[in-house]
């Protein structure tokens, strides 16, 4: 067997909000190319965990080690802020549930996609624009919309634009917070297909927070089930969903509405 090193390694992560526990003692490894789903109901701590792991919410206890492109291990809360911010806008991507949180609504689609490139020093307008056009194609937005602001886009298009804006810098790790939440079912299916294709074509690792077990089944290899800030069950996605062991997971799975 080839021994693989985890891309990100989370140890005993605890986030508190004053006296309240956001998430408690969470540990996991994410390997390159792996997609981890985090499921649980609202308030279960899954978004807290995502924010902490993605460097946006400093944990009270615990460590997050990230394996950089240089194959060095870095503790993301011990590195300097410039280093962390650079990592976050080059090596990492964060797809928000509400595209308005992840897009610049006041500038064109092309500028939204080009921002990360300009942030790492691209200074050739023609190259930035052609890269933006090619990414619009990848996320199935017509090229003639490149100069339109996202305010003129539908919700599904905005979400696809947000994905393009995030993936243009060639990140290795993508964080997604309810990426299909708030979309029509048909739009959701298209987005899921697109996401799955991009993740596997680009060999991305991803951590996806969702309350939708169907989304988790389609996108993630592995699943962590959270309740009350704790991980109550984790394992292969289909194993957790088809043969749930923990009472809470059984309740979640048995609560799915059948069409």
């Amino acid at each position: 067997m080839t021994t693989r090193m985890p891309l990100i390694s989370v140890e005993d992560l605890t986030v508190t909000y004053g006296d309240r526990i956001g998430c408690n003692g969470v540990s996991f490894d994410l390997f390159p190319g792996e997609v981890l789903g985090i499921v649980g109901e609202s308030g279960s701590g899954k978004s807290t965990l995502l924010n902490a792991v993605s460097g946006q919410l400093e944990p009270a206890v615990g460590q997050i080690h990230y394996r950089t492109r240089l194959n060095e291990t870095a503790d993301i809360y011990r590195m300097s802020e410039p280093e962390r911010r650079f990592l976050m806008r080059t090596d990492w991507a964060f797809v928000h549930q509400n595209p308005r949180d992840g897009l610049r609504m006041g500038v064109s689609a092309g500028a939204n996609i080009g921002e990360r490139l300009m942030g790492v020093g691209w200074r050739h307008y023609g190259e930035i624009r052609s890269t933006a056009l090619s990414w619009l194609g990848k996320v199935e937005i017509f090229e003639d919309r490149v100069d339109d602001p996202p305010t003129t886009f539908s919700g599904g298009m905005q979400q696809r634009l947000q994905i393009a804006r995030n993936l243009v810098s060639g990140p290795r790790l993508v964080f997604m917070d309810e990426p299909t939440g708030g979309l029509d079912v048909s739009v959701q299916a298209r987005l899921l297909d697109l996401l799955r294709g991009l993740v596997s074509d680009l060999g991305l690792s991803a951590i996806i927070v969702t309350h939708d077990l169907a989304v988790a089944r389609l996108l993630s290899h592995r699943l962590m089930v959270m309740q009350g800030g704790e991980v109550v069950e984790s394992g292969l996605t289909d194993q957790v969903l088809d043969d749930p062991q923990h009472p809470y997971t059984q309740l979640l799975v048995s609560s799915i509405l059948q069409v």
């Binding site: 693989r4 390997f31 299916a189 799955r196 290899h221 592995r222 292969l236």
Partner: peptide, 26 residues
Amino acid sequence: APHTILDIRRVTMGYVSQFLRVIPRV
């Protein structure tokens, strides 16, 4: 470990269930 099982499923072990489970639109 889960990733080992996924590896086994990818190259060693195939499973034909009674139900087809696919992503819509593919």
